[in-house]
Nucleic acid binder design. Structure first.
Lengths: 192, 192
DNA sequence: ACCGAATGAGACATCGACGTCTCATTCAAT
DNA sequence: ATTGAATGAGACGTCGATGTCTCATTCGGT
């Protein structure tokens, strides 16, 4: 018997395949199943053996992304300390998942309300709660709704990921650019 | 002879078809040519008579979007007066085109550098120049590159459009939410 | 060295969307 | 009323991607 991680025989690392798929689909969202397979270094048939179809693959990616995002939220310690610092930590932790997040957000827009993974709601709730707490503690302005700040957070992370990908922004500046704009805005401020 | 606008016989208003297509594709980027035709109230055959194929349709939408964006830039009077006020006017003028802009930006990401309309470069240059001028005049912070501010501008406009579409943000708050976040950021400021 | 699971390569049928074409019909101009 | 352009509906054929299947091969465990 050669049982491994989940009690199943596995020569190809499911998680590694997902990584490769994420890396490719992040750059080319319309990539073929065949292209995904090649990118993962496996045959198309094998890819199908692990993921029933393109849908299943995307769902698995969604699951992976949500897990990593939740973990990023955990590591960032969203619920403790000054909220602006928490946002800093959040962006830092989210950076590695940024491209995947961007892909999934775009992909979700296509679903047009079919059946959205409830994980997104939980994620939104956590991020939104951070901004709300910051408002209650007088750290964030109250005229921008938590829902919008959450949305803007996703948007900026996505924009940042693409900007880095296209070389319009240096990878090392990713965190700084996003955090500074999200927290401080573009206008020159007397404080700080 | 029934010559009309551009010297051709036209029963269907080409521009109106483009509007309908934009409205639909904005919501459902993967819409079929048939769906687009139905949305425009015409037959699929007629749609093909006006736009050789899906590519041609998207290109036409790109052209339309670029024209409207350029006009929005013109109307906003980007080159005059305080730069922060100019950004306000810019967002206000861009709002009607926001969904289409969002669609085109996403669509362009798929092209993966094939042949991008040079119009985007011109647009980027104009917006970027606004931010740069603002920096030179001490209105905007200099630690955020104009390229990134431009990118963030697109991103926030897109996020805003989707947030409104999904009802997460009130349509009337669109401009305010974007402008305030882009200019002032989320952090509570002593000034203002 | 052996055995069986897992893989890779390819063949195959299917399906959806596309692009083209035909033909009857509508409609505006004359 | 007549004419011709333009449209709508539908029939095709085509193509790319998908999903399934088979079979030879590889590879790890024993």
């Amino acid at each position: 018997m050669s049982h491994s991680v989940y009690g199943r025989l596995m020569s190809v690392d499911r998680n590694q395949v997902l990584r490769a798929a994420a890396a490719l689909l992040t750059r080319k969202a319309t990539a073929t199943m065949d292209e995904v397979a090649r990118a993962a270094g496996i045959g198309r048939a094998t890819l199908h053996r692990h993921f029933a179809g393109r849908d299943a693959l995307v769902r698995a990616l969604e699951e992976l992304g949500l897990q990593e995002l939740e973990r990023a939220l955990d590591r960032a310690g969203i619920d403790a300390g000054p909220e602006d610092a928490a946002v800093r930590r959040l962006v830092a932790e989210v950076e590695p998942v940024a491209p995947l997040l961007s892909f999934l957000v775009t992909e979700n827009q296509l679903f047009e309300g079919e059946q959205v993974n409830e994980g997104w709601a939980r994620l939104d709730a956590r991020v939104s709660a951070l901004f709300r707490r910051g408002q209650e503690n007088g750290v964030f302005r109250i005229d921008l709704t938590p829902a919008w700040l959450t949305e803007a957070f996703y948007g900026l992370v996505g924009s940042g990921a693409w900007a880095v990908q296209d070389g319009r922004v240096a990878a090392k500046d990713f965190q700084y650019m996003i955090v500074e704009l999200l927290l401080g805005g573009a206008r020159r401020s007397v404080e700080k």
